[in-house]
Simulated scan of single mutants.
Amino acid sequence: MTDRLTCLLAALAVWCLGAPALAQGHEPPDADAFDSATNFLACRGNGFALCYYSGPGGDQPTQPGTSSPPLPCNPNLEDTAACTCYAVPSGMHEGEFVWNYVEIGSILNEQVRHDTMELCHEDGSNCLNMKNQRDICHVEDGVIAEAEECQMAPVCAALGNPAAGAPQTLYPELDSATLISTFSFIYSNVHEFGSTDCTEIENPTYAGCMTAPCREDENGLTTCECPVVDGPYQVGQAYANLQCDIGPHIWSAAYHEPSESED
């Protein structure tokens, strides 16, 4: 695994973990169990939303020579937040289909989460994931080995396939939900990856967006309905003067409690 990927995974750990389920009458998924890159199931060919950088209402610092539109997360009255996120409706970026990733413990649809864990195992190791796609499943660029542990996870099919005209089925009751929030490395050359601890602020609140439903907007953006959590969190970015309290907005973030080995 490259040094760059290792650094990105460290940032991913604090964002994807802890995303609670939407109010569907089910217990929240177990998302405080990040062990390795196998937890991030690899999907391709689906449209998706990217909420990793969402939060403040105004501009955020970006890398030299780049810029980003405002990506605010606005809390609603129903324990959710309307988060503006990047939209990738075709599943393509800069002319190529891109890999995007679902943290297996954070799938908000209970049945899809169950089916995915049954096939892929609870750690995601029996399906194509962020780790094995770069070693035992890698044949050459764009080619994946034909092996059981290299199969795409069931959740990938639930994200939809625009080329085949297949809509998302993670939220079949939501006709307006055309995209699902996942993670991708696109725009990592624009924003500042890292980790900012927000566990000590007063009355902390954040939005957990992994696999949240989204509707397409204009200008390459989308609005996702992300569950809101009251509790400590970490932001998956690090730049000078990053503020944890960005009221009336909130960060798209998560809480990952360090294990004893991380203390």
Rank of each mutant, 00 (worst) to 15 (best):
A13H: 13
A147Y: 03
A147I: 00
G194T: 01
D79G: 11
H191N: 11
S184H: 05
G95R: 13
A240Y: 03
G124E: 04
P61W: 01
D123G: 10
Q63C: 08
E110P: 00
A157S: 15
F40A: 02
Q24M: 12
E122R: 13
N74Y: 14
S195W: 06
E96Y: 06
F185N: 14
G47D: 04
P227C: 02
E202K: 10
T80I: 11
A37Q: 08
I180C: 09
G65A: 03
S252A: 14
S252M: 12
V155K: 06
E218P: 00
D3V: 07
P61I: 02
E216Y: 04
N161D: 13
E257S: 07
S54G: 13
L50C: 05
I104F: 02
V102I: 05
A163D: 08
A254H: 13
G95E: 07
G231F: 04
Q234P: 10
A207G: 04
E94D: 13
L221R: 12
G160N: 02
D197Q: 02
G55A: 06
G47F: 09
L77A: 13
I136T: 13
P89I: 12
D230M: 09
Y53T: 09
T222P: 02
V190S: 02
C214S: 09
C244T: 03
C7W: 09
P204H: 04
V190H: 07
S252I: 10
G105K: 09
Q168L: 10
G105L: 05
P232Q: 13
S106I: 01
N241G: 07
I201A: 08
N100P: 00
N109H: 11
V139M: 12
Y86K: 05
Y101K: 06
L77D: 06
N219P: 11
F34K: 11
N161I: 00
P154V: 15
D32E: 11
G55F: 10
N219S: 13
N74P: 11
Y233E: 06
A163F: 12
L9F: 14
S68D: 03
M210W: 11
A33K: 13
H121L: 15
G165V: 04
A81N: 15
I186R: 15
D230N: 10
Q168D: 04
I180N: 02
A212E: 08
A49E: 03
T2K: 12
T80W: 08
W251I: 05
L5R: 15
G165D: 01
E122A: 14
A207H: 06
C127M: 03
S261T: 08
I144E: 05
V112C: 03
C156S: 05
F185K: 15
Q111P: 01
I250H: 12
P28A: 15
G58Q: 01
E146L: 02
C73H: 04
D135A: 00
H26T: 14
E216A: 11
A42C: 08
L50M: 06
T2Q: 12
P56D: 00
C85H: 05
N126P: 05
C16S: 09
S176A: 10
P213V: 09
C120H: 03
P64C: 00
